[in-house]
Amino acid sequence: MEDVPDPQVPERARRRTYTAKYKRDILTEYESLNRQGRGALLRREKLYTSLVSSWRDQRDKGVLAALARPAGAPPASAAEKDAARLRKENLRLSGELETARQVIAIQGKLSALLDQLSTNSSETNTEK
């Protein structure tokens, strides 16, 4: 005969997890009820008052933290600031390098032109 596990007992116990929406809904309902209604809600959902209290504290701390946080993007970390500074410096240096390459190219062309002019000038002087 095969050993069938008891369907009422899981093989391994798991903690219950609650979504933020579920917590919010339970808190809203819990706070709108009287004492008997609260007890019935806790029994129906298989919750403890300590859990509801901790959810309330989490909610209140979250609201206070959200109100204390300044508007806009969060401040960048030191690493992000350093990376942004290095990217900006890299762009600046790349621009300077391109300018220097263009100057060198122009100087090379000018040198070749001057060399050609001096060669032509010396040839015309020797022909006279």
Rank of each mutant, 00 (worst) to 15 (best):
L67R: 14
L64Y: 00
R35L: 11
E31C: 02
L97T: 06
K109G: 05
P7Q: 01
R44F: 10
D57W: 03
A84W: 00
W55L: 00
L110Y: 07
E123Q: 14
R101M: 10
N90K: 14
A66V: 03
Q58E: 14
S94G: 06
G108I: 02
P5N: 11
L41F: 05
V103T: 10
L117Q: 14
G37R: 01
Q107W: 06
R24C: 09
A68F: 00
R43S: 10
A20N: 03
E11I: 01
G37A: 00
L27I: 08
Q58F: 06
L51P: 00
K61N: 10
K128Q: 09
S54G: 03
T99D: 10
P70Y: 02
S54T: 07
R92C: 02
D57Q: 12
A40E: 15
S53W: 08
K46Y: 05
R69I: 00
A13I: 08
Q116A: 11
A78H: 10
S121L: 10
S53K: 07
P5Q: 12
L86D: 06
L41K: 10
R69L: 06
T49C: 00
K21L: 11
A20R: 15
G37F: 07
E127I: 04
G72L: 07
L97M: 10
K81F: 03
T124V: 10
P70G: 02
D57L: 10
E2L: 13
A83C: 03
G62S: 03
G39C: 00
K81D: 02
L93E: 12
G37E: 07
G95K: 12
V103W: 01
R15D: 09
S121C: 05
I106T: 12
G37P: 09
I106P: 00
S118Q: 13
R56P: 01
Q36W: 05
A13T: 01
V9G: 00
T124Q: 07
